[in-house]
Amino acid sequence: MQSSSDHEGSKLGMWLFLYTEIMLFGGLFVLYAVYYHKFTDDFIAGGQQLDTFFGTLNTVILLISSFAVAAAITAIQNNSKKIAIILLGSSLLCGFLFLINKYIEWSHKFEVGIYPNSEKLLESDPGLNIFFGLYYVITGLHGVHIIIGMALLVWSLVRVKSNHITDQNYVLLENAGLYWHLVDLIWIFIFPLFYLIL
């Protein structure tokens, strides 16, 4: 009985934190929307320089990894420790692949002189500079969240291995999973805003 209310409380705490994350990225999306409204042509010119292929690939990778984490919770509830470990491992692998793609994408942008405060951007229209500024801030902050999410998944994986996370007490795995899903959720909106509608 006592650990039951504990479980609920832990999850409520995690959700309250996730609400602040929604507000954080929500605020950045408002910024994006207002500047899109003001510099539509520059945003379209900037968006066309982003590679839809990478955006789509990373969307697919994150969706699969989100599924793997959700399935890992089901596995723990069914007492299948081995399956849970394999699923958590694969979602971590997906996180790595996401970061590698991001690295390729960003380094290509750097090569062609598109990075914060670069000469090319400072000389071009202010709208273009703002577009890529928002691109780096939003995808960069999202990337930091991927790294934190992966750290939480590693922690959960270790705790599953050491039998600290079991079908009786798996709130840590659930909360790590919630964080990982939120990171996926944010990407679901970043993807169309930067890669598709422009």
Binding site: S66, A70, H181, L182, L185, I188, F189, F191, P192, L196
Partner: peptide
């Protein structure tokens, strides 16, 4: 259309993956 599809995807993640 893009935002509508994104919201649908987000709802699915929230409802099922996030329980």
């Amino acid at each position: 259309v893009a935002l509508l599809i994104a919201s649908t995807k987000a709802s699915l993640v929230l409802m099922f993956f996030m329980h």
